[in-house]
């Protein structure tokens, strides 16, 4: 089934690397995927957005008006793309930076203070992994936890063991938040 995901935040938050990881994970699991980055001329700090589409068969259009799943990593991203989420979709909000009240009641909302959790775990850079975890926990149906863990193993194979452990912990923490949101 064709599923679309938009990730948005500001440059440096790991928007693009999260998108590429999800697309690669889907491909490794035998699916088709597209990843489309969009950003301004700034080297860092500007608005960053990417669209990932995952499908069982070849993807015809990688562009769509509304997405099935949305990860917003800061307030501006929520303000700009919050309305682009399909009714019945899943929204993952990094509440460490999305400060306004999320008012949509026609979608599943997972509120994750990802930056705060990431700092607690030891490195703010793993906030994007926490949000991917929340996406998996909320059963967005794009990638599985096992496949994502395998991707992390591959991605951080050349790094120190602690780096991999941190990312595993980040993913698991995110999954918990996703599951809790589903229960609520």
């Amino acid at each position: 089934m064709k599923k679309s995901l938009v990730i948005s935040g500001s440059g440096g938050q790991g928007v693009m690397s999260a998108g590429i990881m999800i697309a690669q994970t889907a491909v490794d699991a035998g699916k088709c995927a597209t990843f489309l980055p969009e950003y301004g001329p700034e080297q860092r700090g500007g608005s960053a957005k990417c669209t990932v589409v995952v499908n069982d068969t070849e993807i015809i259009s990688p562009l769509m008006a509304k997405c099935d799943t949305l990860i917003v990593m800061n307030e501006q991203a929520y303000a700009k793309f919050g309305k682009n989420l399909k009714s019945g979709g899943v929204m993952i909000a990094n509440t460490s930076r999305v400060t306004s009240e999320i008012t949509r009641d026609d979608v599943t909302v997972v509120r994750v203070p990802a930056d705060d959790i990431a700092v607690e775990l030891g490195n703010i850079k793993c906030a994007n992994i926490i949000l991917i975890g929340a996406l998996i926990g909320a059963e967005a149906g794009i990638i599985t936890e096992e496949a994502m863990l395998a991707s992390l193993d591959k991605k951080f194979a050349s790094k120190k063991k602690e780096v991999l452990a941190l990312n595993h912990a980040a993913l698991k923490k995110g999954v918990e938040y996703g599951r809790q949101a589903l229960k609520a």
Partner: peptide, 9 residues
């Protein structure tokens, strides 16, 4: 530029 920057298989 869209196809230039997109990733697919």
């Amino acid at each position: 530029g869209c196809l230039g920057s997109i990733m697919e298989q």
